[in-house]
């Protein structure tokens, strides 16, 4: 980008973009909302739709607390715009399960005591669900000895590497790993 572009951009500021009326498919429900184009998916979920299960940690893509599933894939809702996700299937922690019908991963976290304060937990659980689907699909990771091998053995090293985008400030990591391993093996107990 040139310096003159930079100045042109600065001149272009000041006018507010009109709000966009969008439809988002969240937890199998179509929700209509009006958002400023700047609204992150995270803020749309929390502030517009009152789905506060998804947490805002750093808001810069470093902590993983805002992880949701979009079309089955784990992504950071703080680093994407709500207006970019019309036509997508968005799944948040509220859609995975509720206290009466826990998702197996949620149950595993409870049974393994995979948290202390719980703030990172929704992101950890959404990330873990997405991560196990990636393992199921045979995706390699940084600790996979041979990336050309089509199968992945879900060792603790693999779980830790694949979950490195989710920070737990209470450092409940050993129990988080146990919960994920338990869930992957089909039972947390």
């Amino acid at each position: 980008m040139s310096a003159s572009d930079t100045h042109a951009m600065r001149r272009g500021q000041g006018e507010m973009a009109p709000p966009s009326a969008i439809k988002l498919n969240i937890n199998d429900q179509v929700r209509q909302l009006e958002v400023d184009p700047r609204t992150s998916l995270l803020d749309a979920l929390r502030e517009h739709l009152r789905l506060s299960g998804t947490k805002k940690g750093c808001d810069h893509g470093q902590c993983g607390a805002c992880t949701v599933l979009i079309n089955g894939r784990r992504v950071l809702s703080c680093l994407t715009l709500a207006v970019m996700h019309e036509d997508d299937e968005i799944m948040t922690i509220e859609g995975l399960g509720d206290p009466d019908h826990l998702h197996p991963m949620q149950r595993a976290f409870v049974e393994c005591d995979g948290f202390q304060c719980g703030y990172c937990t929704p992101g950890q659980i959404c990330s873990a669900v997405g991560m196990l689907a990636e393992v199921e699909a045979g995706w390699p990771s940084h600790v996979t000895a041979d990336v050309s091998s089509p199968r992945v053995a879900l060792t603790d090293d693999e779980i830790r590497e694949r979950m490195s985008g989710n920070i737990c400030r209470c450092a409940a990591y050993p129990n988080i790993v146990a919960a994920i391993r338990g869930s992957a093996e089909g039972g947390a107990t």
Partner: peptide
């Protein structure tokens, strides 16, 4: 994760999975 990249260009696959996090690489 592409099988052709993993078998014919493994250094590219290794480089990609060494960067960022799973969530970021999906985006």
């Amino acid at each position: 994760a592409d099988p052709r990249v993993r078998t014919r260009y493994p250094a590219l696959s290794e480089a990609l999975v060494s960067g960022a996090s799973g969530q970021l690489r999906n985006k």
